[in-house]
């Protein structure tokens, strides 16, 4: 069913890349190098600003207070810790993504640090990509730390909570880690959208729009329902477009399955990750179109 659009898309992409190869192939090496340098300095800047430390302390506090459900039965306790912990990871990840990504480029413009970089042999796309990658590295570090803490809490609780024969404390570690990784993809996709918005709008608007996109992206299945249930052609067309344009955040949300100890489809996760990477590339391409045309 999806093979025809895929084939069309694939042909278009390959054809375009082939036709324009003289433009982008020679730029690849140097472009990758400067992208990486910009990513690195973005990370270094965040480290100097002690963004990571502040967030980590906050999250440690939240996660360490996860063991106050001791009056519940073991399975419920596990559920509470897993769903609360994964949600904490996702929320902090997303809030951080919003505040890091929304300021990533506007801050450069406002401080005029961008001029010194863009007057060097750096393409604007490389600049956008480098800043985005830098933010992603920061977020990856933070979310990894949070996940490690959550796993630690689960292991400790598993050791201390006495199991009943009808209710067992199940740390469900594989799935918890899997869900955390998928949350990272959600954060990455959302961050790409935020970077896109920040190239065309003011910071305050970007932050507001980011929250909106986050909410809409989380209602992905509802929009899909609306598209399926549409009564007129226009409605169907509108909701379908909307569905494909908004970030597919629900694809990455496995918290529900994991905290209910349901079957988790890793296959769906891998597909979602692939789709997420494609979405990130698409959104960054659009962002670079806007950024390329931006008057600075």
């Amino acid at each position: 069913m999806g093979n025809l659009p895929f084939a069309i898309g694939f042909v278009v992409v390959v054809a375009l890349l082939a036709v324009t190869h003289r433009l982008w192939v020679p730029a690849l090496g140097h472009g990758a190098a400067s992208t990486w340098r910009i990513a690195k300095i973005t990370v270094a800047e965040a480290r100097r600003r002690r963004v990571v430390q502040a967030v980590v302390v906050l999250v440690l506090l939240v996660l360490l207070f996860m063991n106050f459900f001791s009056y519940l039965n073991p399975r419920e306790q596990a559920r509470m810790i897993i769903s609360g912990g994964l949600s904490a990871i996702t929320v902090f990840g997303i809030l951080l993504a919003i505040f890091v990504a929304a300021f990533l480029i506007p801050q450069e413009l406002e401080n005029r640090t961008v001029y010194a970089v863009l007057s060097k042999p750096v393409r604007r796309f490389e600049f956008v990509l480098g800043k985005y990658l830098g933010a992603m590295i920061i977020l990856a570090v933070i979310m990894t730390i949070m996940t490690v803490v959550l796993v630690g809490v689960l292991l400790v609780q598993d050791h201390f909570v006495p199991d009943f024969d009808h209710s067992v404390f199940e740390p469900n570690l594989d799935n918890v880690i899997f869900a955390a990784v998928m949350s990272y993809f959600a954060v990455a996709v959302l961050a790409a959208y935020i970077v896109l918005i920040s190239t065309v709008s003011s910071t305050a608007m970007t932050v507001i729009a980011s929250f909106l996109i986050w909410a809409i992206g989380s209602l992905q299945s509802q929009i899909h329902d609306l598209a399926e249930a549409a009564e007129t052609v226009f409605q169907k067309w509108f909701f379908t477009m909307f569905y494909w344009i908004m970030p597919p955040l629900e694809n990455f949300d496995f918290r529900h399955e994991v905290s209910n100890f349901m079957h988790v489809s890793y296959r769906a996760g891998i597909n979602a990750a692939g789709e997420g990477v494609l979405y990130i590339i698409i959104v960054l391409i659009v962002a670079s179109i806007f950024f390329n045309d931006r008057q600075m």
């Binding site: 140097h30 300095i41 800047e45 100097r48 005029r112 001029y115 010194a116 007057s119």
Partner: peptide, 21 residues
């Protein structure tokens, strides 16, 4: 063209660089 920019240098007005470095 990026190759042109390899041969020029630019001092922006009220230049500000990454201030933590």
């Amino acid at each position: 063209d990026v190759s042109v920019r390899e041969r020029i240098g630019f001092l922006p007005e009220d230049a500000y660089l990454y201030d933590v470095f």
